[in-house]
């Protein structure tokens, strides 16, 4: 295994603020991993994402201490546009990250900035559109498609730059559950089939916990818990911090305290729990 993101004793404070938003974070993410970061609002997870491509400290200024190494690059020594080739960021609000008047032009935006030749660009754009499942929308205006589709355009537009890492900051909070699931499916496929390292920031663990075996819980600028979600979601500390435990996991825990044990690993999805219950009740 090879580390693709390495943070070492990271402390970051936004300009004009006294309290650091990231307060002593050390973290290693391996190449090809699907990492889920969660934690209450204001816990520093968004700031952490911004350090991955250098938005912190280049765009936001402020004071950064510690080491950030992403895809072999020392982020503080590189410009954000250098990092953009390695790390793609997808933000929460789909509306504010699309600026062109046609979908394919939006997807090409980053490549145009890199000065890529038209032929190569065409290939990359079509490839990214297909992977995100929006090839049919390529001539539409990003403004007139649904929120779920807009978010897929945003994914395609970072994908086109063929980054090793894609970081998504609460990409589905404006979407309905079915569109959200479709987005997660797209991301999971990118991780599995293209080997892209995924860092996903989410509150909705009920929809996402099943995709990962590396869950990070943050609170007050620190990493509090890190490891397999099956362990972490059972940990009392997780509930204390205020992380929403998926209902299936919660039900499993409740049953267990009542002496009804299925003696299996903690379920992360309704399917897993249903199977365990079926087996236990049919015994």
């Amino acid at each position: 295994m090879m580390a693709i993101i390495e943070l070492c004793d990271l402390v970051y404070t936004y300009p004009g603020v006294s309290k650091p938003s990231i307060d002593g974070v050390s973290l290693t993410i391996e190449k090809g991993e699907f990492v889920l970061i969660t934690g209450p609002s204001g816990c520093g997870k968004t700031s952490l994402c911004r350090t991955f491509n250098g938005l912190i400290p280049h765009f936001y200024q402020g004071e950064l201490k510690g080491q950030v190494t992403v895809a072999g690059q020392n982020v503080t020594g590189k410009q954000t546009f250098d990092m953009a080739k390695h790390v793609g960021l997808v933000f929460q609000n789909p509306e504010n990250q699309l600026f062109a008047l046609s979908v394919e032009k939006d997807v090409a935006f980053g490549l145009e900035n890199l000065g890529m030749s038209r032929e190569e660009m065409r290939k990359r754009v079509d490839w990214a559109l297909n992977l995100a499942g929006i090839y049919d929308l390529r001539e539409r205006s990003p403004h007139e498609v649904s929120g779920g589709q807009q978010q897929r355009i945003a994914i395609a537009s970072v994908l086109a730059m063929q980054p090793e890492i894609i970081v998504l900051d609460e990409p589905t909070s404006f979407l309905d559950p079915l569109s959200a699931e479709k987005i997660f499916d797209v991301i999971y496929k990118l991780n599995q089939e293209q080997g892209i390292t995924v860092v996903l920031v989410e509150h909705r663990l009920d929809l996402t916990a099943k995709y990962t075996n590396h869950l990070i819980v943050m609170d007050k600028g620190k990493i509090c818990l890190e490891g397999n979600p099956r362990d972490i979601l059972c940990n009392e500390e997780t509930s204390r911090i205020g992380v929403g435990i998926p209902k299936a996991t919660l039900l499993y825990k409740k049953l267990k305290t009542n002496g009804f044990s299925v003696n299996k690993q903690t379920p992360l999805s309704s399917d897993e729990l249903a199977d365990q219950l079926l087996e236990a009740l049919n015994k």
Binding site: N53, L55, H58, F59, Q79, T80, F81, D82, A84, K85, G88, L89, F91, N96, Q97, F99, E104, K105, A108, F109, G110, L111, E112, N113, L114, G115, M116, S117, R118, M121, R122, V125, S157, V158, M161
Partner: peptide
């Protein structure tokens, strides 16, 4: 979002 998509990477940008 523009910064994250390599805005300003090269002097002469190309066009799709």
């Amino acid at each position: 979002a523009m910064e994250s998509r390599a805005w300003g990477a090269v002097k002469k940008r190309t066009n799709l």
